[in-house]
């Protein structure tokens, strides 16, 4: 039995979520190979070779993979993946983009965003915004799976000494090209990897008021998120959205400020270890999942919180 794990990276360094994906691979069992596809990304392959429990690293270094274009990457993974029983990628916007394409090319039904491995053929996955958990079973020859990173504890980044093998496989489907990107620049930790997340909702009233949350976040080393309502209202960009259709987070501490707690938001954060809710409406559903609830006007409570940290 063998598992191919697709490495998530930015051509310079490996993204932490790859370690969670390898953890899921270990629970499935078998030899683990990590595929690094990108451009000028040999440093990433060296990093991947050190991951605890990885047997081999395949490096596909080619301009066609520089921006992780789904059409090119899927052709590569479908070809490389043929020899494997499992193909895993993180359920990030990269994995979600190219992996269904791989599954279709291999004529298999993909399994999206597993949250647990029951046995080698059986997995749990949330459906209906996490309001139900499905146990699914697959007897397919190849199992193509995305992994919810927050549901698996990462393996150690060091301790392995896998060999790195170069793949001379340039796949350019020729139907898509990269035009540009605007990446949010922030000194704060990544939302999905942060130990503490503080999120604002519609109660923040406008984007400028998020400054209060940034100040608290800087004291706690936290990432800042938002509910869909705050994103829809244009307070903050969509990459800050936590929820069913945004990012899934499970930090040690999640602080929800001015968020009512719609099921779509809860879907993205209810696996957090400790949840704090600050809301002036004591009937807000967020209090039903909060470990500590503070019924207060956020415009008084948040600055006070900042001063007391």
């Amino acid at each position: 039995m063998s598992v191919l794990v697709y490495a998530e990276h930015d051509n310079a360094s490996l993204k932490g979520v790859t370690l969670n994906t390898v953890a899921a691979a270990q629970q499935i069992g078998g030899d683990i190979t990590v595929l690094v596809a990108g451009s000028g990304c040999s440093a990433v392959a060296e990093e991947a070779a050190k991951i605890d429990g990885v047997a081999k690293v395949l490096l596909a270094d080619n301009a066609a993979y520089e921006h992780q274009l789904a059409e090119n990457v899927a052709d590569l993974v479908a070809e490389v993946g043929k020899g494997y029983k499992y193909i895993l990628a993180a359920a990030t916007t990269t994995g979600k983009n190219f992996l269904p394409r791989v599954a279709a090319l291999l004529d298999v039904q993909m399994i999206s965003e597993i949250s647990a491995v029951v046995d080698a053929n059986t997995f749990l996955r949330p459906i209906y915004a996490g309001n139900a958990i499905a146990t699914v079973q697959s007897d397919q020859e190849t199992n193509v799976i995305t992994v919810r990173g927050t549901s698996f504890d990462p393996v150690a980044a060091e301790g392995g000494s896998a060999s790195v093998e170069n793949l001379d496989l340039a796949k350019d489907a020729g139907v898509s090209s990269f035009v540009g990107e605007e990446l949010a620049k922030s000194d704060r930790p990544d939302l999905t990897a942060a130990d503490v997340v503080i999120s604002g909702g519609r109660g923040m009233q406008n984007g400028d008021n998020f400054e209060m949350l940034y100040k608290v976040a800087d004291k706690l080393g936290a990432a800042v998120g938002a509910s869909r309502a705050a994103v829809d209202a244009g307070f903050v960009p969509n990459d800050m959205q936590v929820g069913q259709t945004g990012k899934i987070v499970a930090p040690q501490l999640y602080v929800a400020v001015g968020i009512s707690g719609a099921i779509q938001h809860l879907a993205g954060m209810k696996d957090s270890k400790v949840i704090v809710a600050i809301n002036k409406d004591e009937e807000a559903p967020i209090f039903q999942v909060a470990d500590y609830g503070l019924v207060a006007d956020l415009f008084e409570a948040v600055p006070e919180l900042e001063s007391k940290l």
């Binding site: 146990t135 609830g293 919180l305």
Partner: peptide
């Protein structure tokens, strides 16, 4: 091609406590 064996409700999260003020929260 993928069989759904069963569907269950997620683990319920118990509501915690209400704190009186920011000092108690911290």
């Amino acid at each position: 091609l993928v069989k759904t064996v069963k569907v269950e409700p997620p683990a319920e999260r118990q509501a915690g406590v209400k704190v009186a003020d920011v000092a108690e929260l911290v």
